[in-house]
Design a protein around this nucleic acid. Structure first.
Length: 103
DNA sequence: GAATTGACCAGCT
DNA sequence: AAGCTGGCCAATT
């Protein structure tokens, strides 16, 4: 199954996120070139090429909430926790500090 | 090719 | 502060 340009770009951008950092769908979309395509980005990740191919668990909502995960939100939280991101009630505590900015 | 869907976002109530 | 509505985008049916 081939990926579309949009998905490819999104995945590439996500790939460059370092461990322990997170980003939002909106910012990722903006990095790609579609500042208002957060929804499309989320969708691209939802029908992920293969789970684990890209650190999609490092992408959360713009508000700091978890959002969703193809393998289960639980897994997502666990992974992030393992990487050093702290959560509280399903939301990131120092979201801003763990936020990775694309260039 | 049109309509529906979905891991979102911002604004309003 | 929490919940609802409308709006944007690409992929799928």
């Amino acid at each position: 199954m081939k990926l579309t340009d949009f998905e490819s770009k999104a995945l590439e951008k996500i790939k460059e996120i370092p461990e322990g950092k997170v980003s939002s769908y909106k910012k990722l979309a903006r990095a790609i070139g579609f500042p208002e395509a957060a929804r499309a980005v989320g969708n691209a990740l939802h029908k992920n090429p293969r789970l684990i191919r890209v650190p999609c668990h490092r992408i959360v909502k713009n508000d700091g909430s978890l959002g969703g995960y193809a393998g289960g939100a639980k897994k997502k939280t666990a992974l992030l926790k393992k990487e050093g991101v702290r959560f509280e009630g399903g939301k990131i505590i120092n979201f801003k500090e763990n936020l990775y900015r694309f260039r």
